[in-house]
Structures are given as structure tokens and as C-alpha cells.
């Protein structure tokens, strides 16, 4: 066998690929579901915290800032480990999926709150004053005047951050979730051939490459309008 043939036999083995492809496809589905759950919960919680923070209640804000700082400083894998391996000590068992979802949602919440909040503070005071002077209440002003302007400038950093955190779904393989990487690793140890890893990497590229390119496009598009 030539070097290339040996390489192809290891990494691009058609027989192994055919055998484990269904598992990888299942893993792909699971990754997508997990990612969507994280995005929905993380962004909603982040926005909610930013809105609460704009109310300006001191002790509440300190609490929010602490929570945000905490989940920005902790590595996601440590948070996952804390939930999955730690909580059972309190008699509370989470599934791997639930632990990964909860942990990564909290991380995304922290990062997105920070971005949403920066967006809200970037809207000039005059916008608030103008809206309030026409008789709009606090929440209508926030919803109709401030947030639309704030969200626009938060889109580029928010997109990139969301992509980065969503990629962490691969960490769920550590807590036995059979998402793409988990399925691929299982394939490697059963089939004793790394082709499932190649498939897994390809699956991640299929999933994330378009999003990364989209993020790049959004960044240049919004930069243009500055």
C-alpha cells in the first residue's frame, strides 16, 4: 500500500463511513436541537437580564453583573462538569443533555446580556427623553424606541458570540451526549478506524461553515453602514 492508500483506508474508509454515517446523522440532529435550545434560552435570558438592568435597581444590578461575570470567567466545560458531576452530590441528577443545555445557555446568557446592555447604553439619552416627553411609558419607550436602535448595533458582536458558544455543543460529548462528536468517538472505538471522526469533522463544517461565513458577511455589511 502506498502512503496515500493507507491514509485513505484509515481516514476515508468507505465501508466504515457507510456503517457509521447513520449514527453521525443522528448526532447531527441532536447537535442542531441542542444548539437551538441553547440559542433560544440563552438569548432570551440575556435580553431579559439587560432589560431588568436598565430599570436601575442597584442591588439587582450587582446581582446581574456578578452572574454575568461568573459565567464569562468560567470555562464552559467546567460549568458542564459542575452540573453533571457535581449536582448528583446534592441528590439532583441531570441528564448529559440537560446539563450541557443549562450550562451553555447560562454562558450565552452572560455574554449576550453584556452585549445587549452595551447596545442599550449606546442609545443617546435624548432618545429616552424625546420618547418620554411624548408621554410614552418606560417599557414602551424601551420596546419601541431604544431596543430597535440598540439591537441594530449589537447584531455583529452577538452573531459571532452566539456562533462561538453554539460550537461548544461538542463539549456535551464529554458528558455522554451522543451528538456529532460523541457519535464519532463511539464509532472510532467500535470500528477501530478514524473515518467516523472525519465524518464528524465534515458534519461540523456543514453545520458551522455557512454560519461563520454569514457572520463575516454581517460584520462587513454593518461596518459599511457606520
Amino acid at each position: 500500500m502506498t502512503g496515500w492508500e493507507r491514509f485513505a483506508d484509515s481516514f476515508l474508509n468507505a465501508r466504515v463511513a457507510a456503517e457509521y454515517l447513520p449514527k453521525i446523522v443522528e448526532g447531527f440532529g441532536l447537535t442542531v436541537v441542542l444548539a437551538l435550545c441553547i440559542i433560544a434560552a440563552g438569548l432570551a435570558a440575556g435580553l431579559a437580564l439587560a432589560v431588568v438592568r436598565s430599570l436601575g435597581v442597584r442591588p439587582l444590578n450587582w446581582l446581574i453583573i456578578f452572574a454575568v461575570d461568573l459565567f464569562r470567567a468560567l470555562p464552559p466545560l467546567v460549568v458542564i462538569a459542575l452540573f453533571y458531576f457535581g449536582l448528583p452530590a446534592a441528590g439532583l441528577s441531570l441528564s448529559g443533555f440537560a446539563a450541557a443545555w443549562l450550562a451553555l445557555s447560562l454562558v450565552l446568557m452572560a455574554f449576550s446580556e453584556e452585549i445587549f446592555w452595551a447596545g442599550i447604553t449606546a442609545v443617546p439619552k435624548g432618545q429616552w427623553e424625546a420618547a418620554r416627553s411624548t408621554g410614552l411609558g418606560f417599557l414602551p419607550t424601551l420596546r419601541l424606541v431604544v431596543l430597535p436602535q440598540a439591537l441594530r448595533i449589537t447584531i455583529p458582536p452577538l452573531t459571532n458570540r452566539t456562533i462561538a458558544i453554539t460550537k461548544n455543543t461538542a463539549l456535551a460529548s464529554v458528558v455522554a451526549v451522543p451528538e456529532i462528536l460523541g457519535a464519532a468517538q463511539a464509532g472510532v472505538s467500535f470500528g477501530f478506524n478514524p473515518t467516523p471522526l472525519t465524518l464528524g469533522a465534515a458534519a461540523y463544517l456543514v453545520l458551522f461553515l455557512p454560519v461563520v461565513v454569514l457572520g463575516r458577511w454581517i460584520e462587513t455589511r454593518f461596518a459599511w453602514k457606520r
Binding site: R6, F7, S10, F11, K167, N168, T169, A170, L171, S173, V174, I180, L181, A184, Q185, V188, N193, P194, L197, T198, G200, A201, Y204, L205, L207, F208, L209, V211, V212, V213, R216
Partner: peptide
């Protein structure tokens, strides 16, 4: 740049650590 920003770092790490031995 985009390919390596698309692959989760853990996938890259596992690929190198568990995959490369198969290539000798």
C-alpha cells in the same frame, strides 16, 4: 481561517489526538 473557526476546538483536538495515531 473559516474552516478552523467552524470546527469546534474539541473536535480538532480529538481528531489530532485520537485520529493521527491511525496514520502512524
Amino acid at each position: 481561517v473559516d474552516v478552523f473557526r467552524s470546527l469546534p476546538p474539541l473536535v480538532l483536538l480529538i481528531f489530532v489526538y485520537a485520529g493521527l495515531p491511525f496514520a502512524g
